[in-house]
């Protein structure tokens, strides 16, 4: 049993799951924004990273990890709400490339601001749980208390969001506002506020992912870049409309990347996302998990 758990196959699966769950989390945050406002948020990674810097930097000034985490997420939510109000709201009804371009500009601004404020920081963000891998027999399994914590947190957040959308009135209103804003308004749903809340929720989730990614790492502005691309691909392959699809695709991409890294070559690894995207979308251009809905003319 020990040797099986430590086999190359299982090692890759554990490693892939650890990244895959975080990818799924970010992909889900992209889907939330896409569903409510039909904007693909290219600055999502940078926004999460910005909020992470604001909150987690205080760890180095002696504040408790958990307080900093909470502060980061709240900052992220505020940043998301503000972004929707200031940058996105004026663009509703404009061509779809306008918000894309604006968010790309915002990505550039945020990365530059982060880099200019927090460059001196080269310390490792300490993890609240041990990152030492467990051993079975005399072999190492790529699972540590931190990995377990990470997977549990992601699972909790994912199910929390599923509950929010499926079971609560707030979630029902958010779904209705996304599906049919005008009818929702006629029923008294305050659509504008819900859009802002959608952005806040999404950026909060993205921030949580950024904190997880950065824990045990040097806090660097580029921490989210690679994983954001993977998450984007997961959201696209899952078919931007489907939260479940995004999660499944996110975990799968984590696994695929891990296997390409291990069995193929490190040179191809940067392209693995593109490969998954090409294959996934060649099979079904509208995403693997969206129901086929005829486009309205």
């Amino acid at each position: 049993m020990g040797s099986f758990l430590a086999s190359r196959l299982m090692t890759d699966i554990f490693g892939g799951l650890a990244t895959g769950t975080v990818i799924a989390l970010i992909a889900l945050s992209l889907v939330i924004i896409w569903q409510s406002t039909h904007v693909l948020n290219f600055a999502q990674g940078a926004m999460g990273m910005f909020a992470t810097f604001v909150g987690m930097n205080l760890v180095f000034h002696g504040l408790n990890y958990w307080w900093c985490l909470a502060l980061s997420v709240v900052t992220g939510m505020a940043l998301g709400a503000l972004t929707e109000r200031v940058l996105i709201r004026p663009l509703y009804g404009k061509p779809e490339i306008n918000p894309i371009v604006v968010m790309i500009g915002f990505l550039g601004v945020l990365e530059a601001i982060i880099a200019s404020i927090w460059t001196t920081n080269i310390s490792m963000l300490p993890s609240p749980f041990s990152e030492i891998y467990y051993e079975a027999g005399r072999r190492t399994i790529l699972v540590s208390p931190f990995v377990i914590y990470e997977v549990i947190v992601v699972a909790l957040v994912l199910s929390g969001i599923a509950l929010l959308f499926r079971r609560t009135n707030l979630g029902l209103q958010m779904r209705a506002a996304a599906l049919s804003p005008e009818v929702s308004r006629l029923l008294g749903v305050r659509v504008g506020r819900l859009l802002t809340f959608g952005w806040a929720l999404s950026t909060g989730v993205g921030t949580l992912a950024a904190v997880i990614v950065s824990t045990g790492q040097v806090l660097a502005p580029t921490n989210m870049d690679g994983i954001f691309v993977s998450a984007f691909i997961a959201a696209a392959v899952g078919g931007l409309e489907s939260p479940t699809g995004a999660i499944i695709a996110g975990v799968s991409i984590g696994l695929v990347e891990q296997f390409i890294l291990d069995f193929w070559s490190t040179s191809v690894a940067p392209l693995s996302g593109v490969i998954v995207l090409v294959i996934g979308l060649a099979i079904r251009p509208q995403g693997l998990f969206t129901r086929q809905v005829s486009r309205r003319v």
Partner: peptide, 17 residues
């Protein structure tokens, strides 16, 4: 203005808001 992607009861719940 019936929202086709929601169930009958979900549509009605929206009305009660």
């Amino acid at each position: 203005g019936v929202i086709a992607e929601l169930t009958v009861e979900e549509n009605l719940r929206l009305g009660t808001l």
